[in-house]
């Protein structure tokens, strides 16, 4: 297979593995409006999905993140969340702290 063909194949796979879920969402949404109970229910599921995805990214990461220590990832997420609550929801400081804690832990443990 040529290089161009494999690039097109990978991009097509990425598209086909994700886009139909969006189309399905549009199709299923057509008879409802935002105050309907079913939409509220689906929104609740979406929220739980994202939370679960985060947990998986922390415990079973991929790529370069898989080379880091679980403890660093937990400290980073915990520290960022704690600061975020203490600062009443200011994203950027909490975020920078989380990242700083992660790098600090990584450098200390390696």
């Amino acid at each position: 297979m040529s290089n161009t063909q494999s690039v097109l194949l990978i991009v097509a796979l990425g598209f086909l593995a994700t886009e139909p879920w969006r189309w399905l969402g549009v199709a299923f949404s057509s008879h409802f409006n935002e105050d309907d109970e079913i939409i509220k229910y689906v929104r609740t599921i979406a929220t739980a999905f994202i939370a679960a995805l985060v947990v998986r990214l922390i415990f079973l990461p991929s790529g370069a993140l898989a080379e880091s220590e679980l403890a660093s990832r937990l400290v980073a997420l915990g520290g960022a969340s704690l600061l975020f609550m203490m600062m009443k929801g200011r994203l950027l400081p909490a975020f920078v702290t989380g990242l700083g804690l992660f790098l600090l832990c990584e450098f200390l443990m390696k």
Binding site: T18, W21, R22, L24, G25, F28, S29, F32, V42, F49
Partner: peptide, 11 residues
């Protein structure tokens, strides 16, 4: 997850 995200965004 794109399914519930889109289904709840569209309305």
């Amino acid at each position: 997850r794109l399914f519930p995200l889109t289904m709840s965004l569209m309305p």
